[in-house]
């Protein structure tokens, strides 16, 4: 349900091609191709399976390839995406790749460390890291809030919901 962006009022005479959209089209064709390849490797189902396991995958894979090609054609003809608007979004400036990349790194760090350190630690790092990346400049407060949230959520799950989140190296401490 995207609200359209304000496209430039004067549309240039020659269609401006959004080259990045070819990347998406390529991704769709590749994904569809993989679905088809995967479907081709499936065997016939059991006798009581009137719908073969590969029927739907073939349809879905073919659809993805088809839509990828259609998107590439539409792109070449000047179709441009309407990026999603929002209350807090200013599309007049370009994409802030650095912030997004750093946020992704924070999330990856969480994935890499969670088994070792446990949620109570990585959750706090996740919160503080994300807040700092997003422009907060009060390190001590960021970490304090992060620790409060992660330790608080650990005890909420443990005490209220009765679900122990793996504690990692803090096993026995929490």
């Amino acid at each position: 349900m995207s609200v359209p962006t304000t496209t430039p009022t004067t549309r240039p005479p020659r269609p401006v091609v959004d080259k990045a959209q070819y990347g998406l089209a390529g991704f769709l064709v590749l994904a569809g191709g993989y679905v088809l390849l995967d479907a081709a490797g499936l065997h016939d189902g059991f006798a009581d399976q009137p719908v073969q396991p590969y029927t739907l995958p073939y349809v879905v894979g073919a659809g993805l390839v088809l839509f990828g090609i259609l998107l590439a054609v539409a792109t070449a003809r000047g179709d441009r995406p309407e990026a999603e608007e929002g209350e807090d979004i200013d599309l007049t400036q370009g994409t802030d790749v650095r912030t997004v990349g750093l946020l992704a790194l924070v999330l990856i760090a969480n994935i890499a460390l969670i088994d070792l350190l446990g949620w109570a630690i990585t959750g706090a790092l996740l919160f503080a890291g994300a807040a700092i990346v997003l422009g907060s400049r009060n390190w001590i407060r960021d970490i304090a809030v992060g620790v409060a949230l992660s330790v608080g959520s650990w005890y909420f799950f443990y005490v209220v919901l009765g679900v122990p989140i793996p504690a990692g190296i803090l096993d026995g401490v929490l």
């Binding site: 996740l126 919160f127 994300a130 807040a131 907060s136 809030v145 949230l149 989140i165």
Partner: peptide, 24 residues
């Protein structure tokens, strides 16, 4: 402050997904 708002969203999203199976 929005850094806290969006950091909070990422925090709770990660917690939610992790709590399904406790698997990285």
């Amino acid at each position: 402050p929005r850094p806290y708002l969006y950091a909070g969203i990422l925090f709770f999203a990660s917690l939610g997904a992790y709590s399904v199976n406790f698997q990285a």
